[in-house]
Amino acid sequence: MTAKIALEAKQLSLAFGGLKAVSDFSLRVPERGLCGLIGPNGAGKTTIFNLLTGVYQPDHGEIWLGGTRLDGKKPSAIALAGLARTFQNIRLFGELSVIDNVRTACGVRARSGLVRSFLRTPLFLAEERAMIERSYDLLDVLGIAHRADEQAKSLPYGDQRRLEIARALATEPKVLLLDEPVAGMNTQEKHEMRSLIVSLRERFDVGILLIEHDMGLVMEICEEITVLDHGVTIASGNAAGIQENPAVIEAYLGAPEPDEPPSQGPT
């Protein structure tokens, strides 16, 4: 079975000053595919997310989403094109309510501008209504609808991660980038999140690229895994192949217990 490619990165490179953060990175995420990106701490995984979503511009290489070229665009234009992400260090709109966080992202697909908002035209009213409906549906899927009216910053940690995913999905992406979705969660929560991630593909018709330190999770659910070390791809393939790859074993041997979640970033 060969699926069409949704997201493709071709030979991306990025250097900060003299330091090569990413070199010659290539990746393909098929439509509705579920791919993993792993590597020891500091391997450049989040940097790749930042490249894909336009936070950084690559020195070389191309990024394609379907037929659209993404490199050189602003992050907002990339989100509009259909690539959404979550953040490792959670970035919510803290003062806004949970539902408003999702509504804001839904609004990206709305057509009403300032004048329609001021005049409350039929289109505006329909869109606002639709945004509310869709936001509640999204919160239902993520299991946090009962907290819709709470302030986002008052949510417990796990629910904040769920809200980030709901918000990313609200932009109606073709490919979703998840940056350590189960970091800091207990076994029960991890288990729930795992089945959730798997179910998202069908429900939202999206391909998923996942950064995760939890090897078990990645090996279990990802069809394609890319292993990164010092910005260089050292292996890629399916779970079985990766686990036996000597380069991967070597990269992880010096690293402090790759099965453990890494120390939390600034909170």
């Binding site: 979503t53 936070v55 602003k74 992050p75 907002s76 989100a79 509009l80 959404a84 992400r85 953040f87 970035r91 919510l92 709109f93 803290g94 003062e95 806004l96 408003d100 804001t104 992202a105 990206v108 918000r167 990313a168 609200a170 932009t171």
Partner: peptide, 15 residues
């Protein structure tokens, strides 16, 4: 409000 709360996240949400 999204811009006020978190500019980077707002941009990532297509704002």
């Amino acid at each position: 409000l999204a811009v006020r709360e978190n500019e980077i996240a707002a941009e990532a949400c297509g704002v």
